[in-house]
Design a binder for these strands. Sequence first.
RNA 1: GCGAGGGUAGCCAAGUGGUCAACGGCGACGGACUCAAGAUCCGUUCUUGAAGAAGUUCAUGGGUUCGAAUCCCUUCCCUCGCACCA
Length: 988
Amino acid sequence: MLRLWEDCFVEEYWCMKPEYDPCEVEDRWQRAWDSAGLFHVDRDSREKFFITIPYPYLNGNLHVGHTRTFTIGDVIARFKRMQGYNVLFPMGFHVTGTPILGLAELIAKKDPQTLDVYHRFHNIPMDLLVTLNTPSKIVEYFKREAEEDMRSIGYSIDWRRKFTTTDDAYKKFITWQFNLLYERGFVGRGSYPVRWCPNDDNPVEDHDILRGEGATIIDYTLIKFRLSESGLVLPCATLRPETVFGVTNLWVNPLVTYLQIEVIYSDDRREEWVVSREACEKLRFTDKRVKIVGEVSGRELIGEHAVNPINGASVLILPASFVSPENGSGIVMSVPAHAPYDYLALRDLYDVDLSEYGISEDIRDIEFISLIRVPGFGEFPAVEVTEELGVTDQSDPRAEEATKIVYRREFHSGELTERTGKYAGMKVSRVKDVLVEEMMERGFADLFYEFSEEPVICRCGARCVVKMVKDQWFLTYSNPEWKEEVYRCLSRMKLLPPEIRTEFENKIDWLKDKACARRRGLGTRLPWDQEWIIESLADSTIYMSYYILSKFIATKVRPEQLTESFFNYVFLGSGSVEAVARETGIPLEVIEDIRADHEYWYPVDLRSSGKDLIPNHLLFFLFHHTAIFPEDRWPRGIAINGFVSLEGEKMSKSKGPLLTMKRAIKEYGADVTRLYILSTAEYTQDADWRSGEIEAVKKHLERFYRIANNIINRRATTGEREEKERDTIDRWLLSRFQHRVSETIDALERLQTRRALQSAFYMVLNDLRWYERRGGKEALPELLHTWTRLLTPFIPHICEEIHSEIAEGFITEAPYPTPDPTQIDKDAERREEYIQKILEDIEEILSVTKIAPEKIILYTTPHWKKNVYQTALRLKLQDGLDMKRVISEIMKDPEVRRHGKEAPKYTQRIIAEIKKMTDETAKLQASNPLPEKEILTETRKFFEKELNCKIEIQSAEKTTYDPQQKSRHAEPMRPAIYIISKDSENER
RNA sequence: GCGAGGGUAGCCAAGUGGUCAACGGCGACGGACUCAAGAUCCGUUCUUGAAGAAGUUCAUGGGUUCGAAUCCCUUCCCUCGCACCA
């Protein structure tokens, strides 16, 4: 390697610019890579590595958040490429769905906020921005920009494979895929509750919501009590259907006017219900129809009796102020044993005269019914908790707290009692689903949906509701067998960081069926029901396989030739190639070529992505792969990284603040941006982009360039290099460097770009500081040669630039360094540590004593201490290091005996020190003790330069000058120090 | 509420049983260079210390251990996700 470097140098005239100009350098190398087609990869005999990053959604420019995820991918792609893999790193563009449509509309109507954000934060000139008023113009614009950005930051992407998710060929691919899913039974149809704006007549998404963004849909059970006389249904909404066994009465608010309504089920069953006006409105959006029949005042209901469907018990209807017509049906079932509100409301009535409602019974006679057993509580947990907290009445805010406590305890550790018949002994947490299902079957109950917080207001100003969307198509992710397959897939995958495995497992459990088609937006139509457009997360689950095909589109294959059998053959290997060739008209060799490419490249080895995609895209990515592909084509790895914030603030595409990739590159250059984003945070940690920090990174990179420049320059001007024996310091530098190399590789294998850069960049820079301080020079060219290669995946442009001065060819194609064990020199490392330690000690003494030194004398250890030290080391390695043994050993030595007083003291201290030592170090110290005197003599000049005073080396064995008897402190590896002050009288 | 992750010096952040007063970066301070500033380079940066040392630290309180930032438990706090939306 050194040869290469020299050959090139002696002859060629050095032409590297002394000042680093990122713009010029980066552009030049990007063009060079491109024209050499470095990243256009095809099937060959090498081992492949297929890495993908989720394609960006084109409703804006790429920003520094994308930059993080994509750059991590590029580093791995470049790293693997240099390691000799045939690396495929492709990119496409995601445009299906509604946001681009929405953006086009906003721009078309010149929405001021949108124009402002896209102008200021997305850096689009205003005159151009206003022309982006259709989805296709938006897609065209951002597609061009995104590719340009990714090129100008130096990503090693095979651009021949790019595509857009609305391309005809891609749509064929999606159609094939959905037909397959449908055939294989992964698609279902049913009704679905969604957040809905009645004014827009559309589902609302988070960003459509003005108020109540956090609201989720909660499913209540509606239990149908019936009035004893009229048979009217009094539906009671509850989150705890199991407590139906403990109902003692119902609650109605006497101040509310209820509606009597006719409820018509989709199968034409009819029932008459009594509910609040608000509840009636909510019911309009369910799959039932409602007709108002009349009004009933709360007062009228109170005093009547109703029948509990579960056990036929007759219960009294009582007044309660806590009952709100806004919640549920406006009628509440009362379970005083387990619900603090019910207990309080009942207690509040104890001394109230209810005769105005025609109630003559004594409320105190109502017996509480205990149906849940909880450890730590008696029969009536609600009563206990209420009393404990001292809740005064039903309007006391602490009633809410009491409710939470009881609910939580009962849910997690409660068990149903005999009172519940066949459910006795079941855990509360398990019984709900079973019970509800059974009650629904028997017509005792129904489902009812509510927002977790009210109100939810749409951007149009209307109040949103929960609507049942009928005949919705969905992917049946809840299918346990499907989940089982995904588990199997996951269990064999490499996940980075490893902690995210539980996250994935939890999310697999949690995943329910998911609607996969919408009425609005860009995308592919559902093949068997053209009314619907396939939802955009559903159409981007296995598209990585499409990259393999996309290379052939437009050159060898036309979209209309992409038939079902074509896909079945190239992706699944089913059918015959002859039949496909006949059917499609695609030449047989081309089909076989595509098939072979698929077999070669697939599966995906690593998908690297932001953490926001775990509960959706990445999960679907796994589900669909297991559904469509055979096991050997299932993904092999996923890596997750965190977000990027801007000076502590969250970025937002639609509201700002936002820093685009374009602007970052323009301001700092591609390599600085890469270096910064890779080194600022690791894995799932969020990175905070700070201009102060990136400026510092820029300076570091400039320093790197300067160092390289100096090395090259010096060589070039010196001309011939005299073959010099390597000094210890050269061996030290190269030895340290081997550790840096192995750590960098280890970190990269785990995708720890931050750790990798700490080692490959910052640590090496620091090593160089010491090296230079020690006067090292000779190892620099050799170091530079390997160092640039080590750094190439991170900062490829500057490395190419340096490399072009010292070697032939692209460094991008050069082999990645591997640690060279022959360069590891433990002695050199120990030597430098020894020197550093002495320097530190002297500096510490100087700073404490504030002596201006005239001269410093270093006394090396006396022989007898060396003996003790070696004996202790030997005994440690023989595993018998204790005071007694050491003493008895060393006392055999007459020389030691002569120091009989000091020896035990010293021994004791040295034992503690040596005990802490690793065996490896001990072995080295024992077998190969450092020649201290020799080292110090060699290093004298260095100390003199550093400390700016004279240095003298003496042996403690026989000193020539030691007025303060400092030499008695001398020990092996720790020479005694005596500092002679400039103002000292007793100078020699 | 449920789930996941986290709380380390002025700030960011590494560290998961001894080699840790704790990598690295920022900031701050000192020095070199310069007429000067900036840039650059070198060094210092918990406290105390007139000799290379000692003391007190890693959210909190307790425990395990010869030994804990690191393991176990308590409490407090922070971030993210909880869906049909990319």
